[in-house]
Design a binder for these strands. Structure first.
Lengths: 238, 238
DNA sequence: CGATACGTTGTACGGCGTACAGAGTTCATC
DNA sequence: GATGAACTCTGTACGCCGTACAACGTATCG
C-alpha cells in the first residue's frame, strides 16, 4: 500500500482513496499500526518503536508493516498527527487571552508529558495532517483576542509553543541523567577540584539552581517563571 | 584509555591524569578525535559521525577510536563542550542588560548555526565540562544587571537560551523539508481538497505565515519577534 | 633482561531500516 | 467457471550501526 503520506494522514476523510477491494483482507490497518506504535512509544520511548518490534506487537511479519506505512519516518509523522488529533479542543468561551494562553500552555505540557517522544519528532510534514491542522486552528483562536495580524499571530503562537516545548523537555526525564547520578559521588569532588576558585558566579548560581531543582523548592520553578514571562511578553504587545 | 568522562572533559587542565608513559606513543589523542568529529559533524551532520567513518578520517582502525573516547555518547559530550569552550567571551563592559541579552542571543544563534548538530546533543553531562561551565559563567554575567537572586537568574538564562535554541532550530535547514518540497505540487492541491472550508483561521494564518516565510518578508521575522518578546519579558522583571 | 602497561587491530555479535522477489488470496471480468 | 489483475503477506538478504573481546606489538620501568 504505497499510498502517499498525505493520503495516509487523511485516511479517515471521506474523500481519501479507499484502496481496491481485491486481495485478502488486511489483518491490520494503517490506523492499528499507528496506534500500536504510539502505545510502544508511550511505554518504552521512541527507541522501542522499531519495525521488527512493532510487527511482533501486531502479530505480523516485519515486512508487513510496510504494507500499511511507507517508512519509519512516515510512521513518526502519522503518530504525531494522531496524538494531535486526539486532543480535545474546548471552546475558549469568554476567557481573556491570558487565561487562554495558560490553557494552551498547560494543554501542550500535558500532551508532551503523555507522549514525551513528541520531542524527538521534528518533521515539517506533520503540519499536513488533520490533527495537527485542527490543533493549530484551535491554538490560533487562543490568540485572537490580541488582535494581531496573521503573520504576527503565527509568530506569537510559535513563541508560546517553543517555550512550552523547552519547558516540558526540562521537566521530562533526561536521557543520560542515570549515568550522571551514578558517577556523581566520584565526579562531583573531582569537578570541584578542577574548578577551584574559578567561575565563582557559575559555581554559586549553579549550586543554588541545582539545590532548588532536586530539593524542597519546586522543580517546576522554571516552568512557572517562564510562563509568567511569556504572558508578560504578550502583554507588552497590547 | 578508559579514563572517565570527567577527566576527558578536563584533559587540558594541569591536574588531569596524564596517562602512563609506557607503550607506543598514541598516533591520535582525545583532542584530535574530538576535533575530527566536530569537522565531520559540521560538514555532514551528526549522522555522519560514525565511529567507522571517524576512524577512517583519522587514519586509524575503527576500534582505535575507543582508546581515546569511551563511547559515541561520550564523544558527543566532548564535542559539545569543545565548541562551547571555543566561543570567545568578550567582557560586557558598561553595556546595559538589554544589549547584553541581545549579544548573548546572537552569540548563541551564531554558535548553533556554525554547529547545527548541537541541537541533537542533549546530555546533562555536558554541564560538567570546562567549556560549558565557562560559557555558563559568562552568560550569567549578562544578566547580573537585572539583580536577580541566583535561582531566578538561572531560570531567566534558561528562558533566553530556550528561545534561542528554538529560534535557531527553525532558522536551520529542516530535516524532511526536501520530501515536502518535492511532493508539494501534488500534495498542496490534495490538502486543499481535504480541508475544504474547514479551519478557515488556520488556513488564513497558515497561508500568510507560509508566504512570509519563503517570500519577500524576512524569514527571520519570528526571530526578531521572539527576541523582542524576550526582552519585554525580562523588562517586566525590573 | 623480564614484566608491565599501554596502543592498535581484526573479528564477531546483535541490532537497525528496508529492497526485493515470491507466494497466497480475493475480486472483476470475460 | 476460468483467468488475470490487484492486493496482502512473508523470508531472505544487504549494508549500515555501536561495541565487546582477545590477540598482538611496543615502549618504558624495575
Amino acid at each position: 500500500m504505497p499510498r502517499p503520506l498525505i493520503d495516509l494522514l487523511w485516511r479517515d476523510h471521506p474523500d481519501a482513496p479507499a484502496g481496491g477491494s481485491r486481495g485478502p483482507r488486511a489483518s491490520v490497518s494503517t490506523g492499528t499500526v499507528v496506534a500500536a506504535a504510539i502505545r510502544l512509544a508511550d511505554a518504552d520511548g521512541l527507541g522501542a518503536v522499531t519495525v521488527r518490534r512493532l510487527a511482533g506487537e501486531l502479530g505480523v511479519s516485519t515486512m508487513s508493516v510496510y504494507t500499511h506505512v511507507n517508512s519509519r519516518d512516515d510512521l513518526l509523522v502519522l503518530m504525531a498527527d494522531a496524538v494531535h488529533g486526539q486532543l480535545d479542543r474546548p471552546s475558549y468561551g469568554r476567557l481573556g487571552w491570558r487565561a487562554r494562553v495558560r490553557r494552551l500552555a498547560e494543554a501542550n505540557l500535558a500532551l508532551l508529558q503523555a507522549h514525551p517522544w513528541l520531542h524527538e519528532v521534528r518533521d515539517d510534514r506533520t503540519a499536513l495532517g488533520p490533527g495537527t491542522i485542527a490543533k493549530y486552528d484551535h491554538e490560533l483562536r487562543a490568540l485572537t483576542p490580541l488582535g494581531l495580524d496573521p503573520v504576527t499571530c503565527d509568530a506569537a503562537l510559535t513563541f508560546v509553543l517553543d517555550f512550552v516545548r523547552a519547558g516540558a523537555r526540562s521537566l521530562a526525564p533526561r536521557p543520560h541523567a542515570a549515568e550522571l547520578a551514578e558517577h556523581w559521588p566520584e565526579w562531583g569532588p573531582r569537578l570541584a577540584a578542577y574548578l577551584g576558585e574559578d567561575h565563582p558566579l557559575a559555581q554559586e548560581v549553579g549550586a543554588a539552581a541545582g539545590a532548588a531543582h532536586d530539593g524542597a523548592t519546586d522543580p517546576s520553578f522554571a516552568w512557572d517563571f517562564g510562563l509568567a514571562r511569556v504572558l508578560d511578553a504578550l502583554a507588552a504587545l497590547t
